[in-house]
């Protein structure tokens, strides 16, 4: 079997997205390549979630082009997304993983073993036979993460995966994310938690009101913000 073509770099070429008269994203030009996690930062309503959906190919731009490794046909084979509120299928924890594996093309004979490995990697082995919808918020987030990882993605998109978690759960999820990044998966993650961005980011994409204000290395972004909006956001001021 031919190795699938790479999804990277992920390129936004003058991309706008609008719903009716409302502009959600406004002429974004952006190139994301291999490397440490890219963190998408910005106040609520900046368009972070929409940007991730465009990255996944779930939405089509109103104008402009999104391309993956130079291709615009973008089937989602080697990408995965973890939604802010992931949907648990009405079946057991293990069956949720197996479902993800089946639709990622994992051969039937390997699924049981891969399910075990994935559950182990997110610390849910003990809950394998529980109904997924009965899990706590943090457990659901980890299960959804394992289900996303089941796709063995080249790009993993995460939409505020720790927004509703306590510090211990947050740390656990961040460790999995870092381990995934180290194993060669490109992480693109939305967050509005500055501490988390400092902990994880290789580079930062800063959005306000659907417009791209900065795309810079994390250290540059925090030490020398190029725009007053970024400086204000880092200081903790409200950006209007």
């Amino acid at each position: 079997m031919r190795a699938p073509a790479s999804n990277l770099p992920l390129v936004f070429d003058d991309v706008s997205l609008s719903a009716g008269a409302t502009t959600i994203l406004d002429r974004i030009c952006l190139t994301i390549g291999l490397g440490a996690p890219t963190l998408v930062l910005g106040p609520n309503g900046a368009g972070k979630t929409s940007l991730l959906r465009l990255c996944m190919g779930l939405l089509s731009p109103t104008r402009g082009v999104v391309s993956w490794g130079g291709r615009i046909d973008g089937g989602p084979e080697r990408r995965a997304i973890l939604f802010q509120k992931p949907v648990m299928l009405r079946r057991s924890v293990a069956a949720n993983i197996a479902y993800g594996l089946a639709h990622a093309g994992c051969p039937r004979g390997l699924r049981a073993q891969r399910t075990e490995e994935l559950l182990d990697s997110v610390g849910l082995s003990a809950l394998a036979s529980r109904p997924a919808r009965r899990l706590s918020g943090g457990e659901q987030q980890r299960l959804a993460l394992a289900r996303a990882l089941a796709r063995q993605p080249e790009i993993l998109l995460l939409d505020e995966p720790t927004a509703s978690l306590d510090p211990a759960a947050t740390r656990f999820v961040e460790e999995i994310i870092l381990a995934t990044a180290h194993s060669g998966t490109k992480i693109i993650m939305a967050s509005h938690d500055l501490g988390q961005v400092r902990r994880l980011a290789g580079d930062v994409v800063f959005l306000v009101h659907g417009r791209l204000f900065e795309h810079a290395d994390a250290s540059d972004f925090f030490d020398r913000p190029a725009t007053p909006q970024a400086a204000a956001f880092i200081r903790g001021d409200l950006v209007l």
Partner: peptide, 25 residues
């Protein structure tokens, strides 16, 4: 509820029907 999640998992058309029926059982 399921639409985006199933699209993101690349679930095909027939499989969507089966999944939704099973999960509404």
């Amino acid at each position: 509820e399921y639409r985006e999640e199933l699209s993101a998992m690349g679930v095909g058309w027939a499989s969507r029907v089966a999944t939704l029926l099973w999960d509404s059982r």
